[in-house]
Design a binder for these strands. Structure first.
Lengths: 343, 343
DNA sequence: TCGCGCATTGCATGCGAAGTCAATATTGCC
DNA sequence: GGCAATATTGACTTCGCATGCAATGCGCGA
């Protein structure tokens, strides 16, 4: 009894269509046809093949199929490494969307900005049928995909909007609503906590808020930047309030920072939110609904956005000549109770 | 000028090793060798090939390579659709772990329990080199993988522990610590909110807590069950306290529910946490650290667990004869301040 | 200068399924 | 019952790359 490891009972090699064909006494082509949708095969043949397949535990080899059909039936989904609680949910929903369409998801995460080139390389090597990009991308990379004829759909990236399909939430509109409502409720001293410098989403949000403030005649605004994390939200409030300065409202570029702001305002500075300080966020993540915060925010319609993104990508895969398309969704206005706001 | 869509400038077909070989004036084998690690090729050859490849935008076709080498260099990662904020983080970290080892991740999510069979089918068809399972799995499915010789590593599943490698957090030990500490601090009236019936993790946690309580002579314990969600935590507290019953502590099977408990206790019942009611959770998710909660909990060492899981799976892929291995990690004891606890 | 051994290189084959085309079986119709 | 039309079926090729094997080239020592 000195053998190491599990004794192999079954065949070491996985069954192929030839094995099935032999056992069923038919040709390999026949087996192949039985495992396709539009193929012609008689009832008798189908039955014999299926029985042989069952007996051998045969499954069509998707790799081999991909080689001959030039379709991997895989799409790449790329997300940045987010301090943000928003993306995991997007990822799960996207996966389900593709799954429903019988498409597999090859997942790539970007730990660091420079990883993007490696990831691009991998996506090309694996012959993904399409790419759903929820991370930074630059011109030359877009060009690589275009010249390789790989459909690309951007998620919440405005970048190179003219050439590439995209799905996004109207960040600016959301911020404009927030600012408008806050202003109407009497807020005048605004502070903004933006996200990371390299986040286009953050830039849009901040620009949207500033633009609306400008339109309302408010041009003196303090802008700090965070990194989308809870901790950076707290830190920003410390910076804002430490020297006795006071604000009516803090507009955080996302919910996680907004929550940090609330905790810092309440904890360290003993301020009541929203009575003494209003705080608003963006995204509509789960924790924003916790009673302790009940955040006033703009919720991105993830369900509709992911469905649209998957649908667009599939369409572009099926018809590569299709012109780029852009779908913009308005965020849902969540009144919450972390801000004194005009209904 | 009636053309629809983008005019195709580049070649419609992706370059193959033959194209490169022709341009470089060498054989296809040579091209193949240049794009491998252990292959022999002269400096001159390598240079010519690389230049031709560059010129044609050639990338080795990983699909074709997989067919011949019998290695897809892909692993499947399966996660359940979790109300739980814990898994997204696991997913991202696993992906990075595999990515570092030059392995791609094919992601599968289980929206519903019955999807598992579909997913199993897909994993087999795509010839993944290994499977990392962070979702429910039953005996017959394990058997399918075993007979197909596909390495399988379970993440936080004790199921069929003897036959399959696994990485998990010691749920029972964590609960025992919590109970022990709470008891030592004088708590006597315990309520437990378990997770979904079909969650083995929840079962282990609840059993662990009950066992320790029993050891301490506490046998009268109220046990309710939730679904891991914030809302179900709140609901459970309503049920517990509505008829005037009082408890010293609520032990929730995860952090999300614990946070729900805290909000319900403070909000609806005006109880001070931890002064009038202690609440503890499990997992150590991000929101548990929010100041409003600062949850007393047991944090799963995700970084070490994911690293161990990836490593184990890779080892098993490289040596299929390897015996099953089990790694159990102790959770980190987070004192927090949502419970009056013995340091 | 010749011979031997090793490093390169090319040729041919195979991985597993899909699809083309031609041969065969089946059916319907008069 | 006979023939055309249609449905099945099988032989063979193809997808793109890796690899065993044989052929070639090279360097170096005697």
């Amino acid at each position: 009894m000195s053998g190491r490891g599990q004794k192999h009972v079954g065949p070491r090699r996985r069954a192929t269509s030839y094995d099935v064909a032999e056992l069923a006494g038919v040709s390999q082509s026949a087996v192949s046809r039985v495992f396709q949708r539009g193929a012609s095969a008689s009832k008798a043949m189908r039955a014999r093949v299926l029985e042989a397949a069952e007996q051998l535990g045969y499954r069509p080899n998707a790799i081999a199929r991909g080689l001959i059909t030039q379709r991997s039936n895989m799409v790449a989904v790329v997300i940045g490494r987010q301090t943000n609680l928003f993306y995991p949910e997007v990822l799960v929903q996207l996966t389900e969307q593709f799954s429903q369409r019988d498409i597999r998801v090859l997942l790539f995460t970007l730990a660091q900005e420079r990883d993007i080139d490696l990831v691009v390389e991998q996506m090309l090597q694996y012959r993904v049928d399409g790419i759903l990009m929820a991370a930074m991308l630059n011109q030359s990379q877009v060009e690589v995909f275009r010249s390789a004829n790989i459909p690309l759909v951007l998620f919440n990236r405005a970048f190179e909007a003219a050439l590439t399909s995209s799905v996004r939430c109207d960040q600016a509109e959301g911020e404009r609503w927030l600012v408008q409502s806050l202003h109407a409720a009497g807020h005048r001293r605004f502070a903004i906590i933006s996200g990371p410098e390299d986040s286009s989403v953050s830039a849009e949000r901040t620009q949207g808020a500033l633009a609306q403030l400008h339109d309302l005649g408010v041009d003196e605004v303090t802008v700090l930047s965070g990194d989308y994390s809870y901790a950076s939200g707290k830190a920003a409030v410390h910076t804002l309030l430490q020297n006795g300065a006071r604000y009516d409202v803090v507009i955080a570029a996302n919910d996680a920072m907004a929550i940090g702001c609330i905790d810092a305002a309440r904890g360290k500075f003993g301020l009541s939110v929203p009575d003494e300080l209003s705080v608003v966020g963006f995204d509509g993540i789960g924790p924003a609904r916790f009673d302790a915060y009940n955040l006033t925010t703009v919720r991105q319609p993830i369900g509709r956005m992911t469905a649209a993104a998957a649908e667009m990508l599939v369409h572009r895969i099926e018809d590569p000549e299709m012109l780029p398309e852009h779908r913009v969704f308005s965020g849902e206005h969540v009144l919450g109770s972390s801000a004194r706001i005009q209904r």
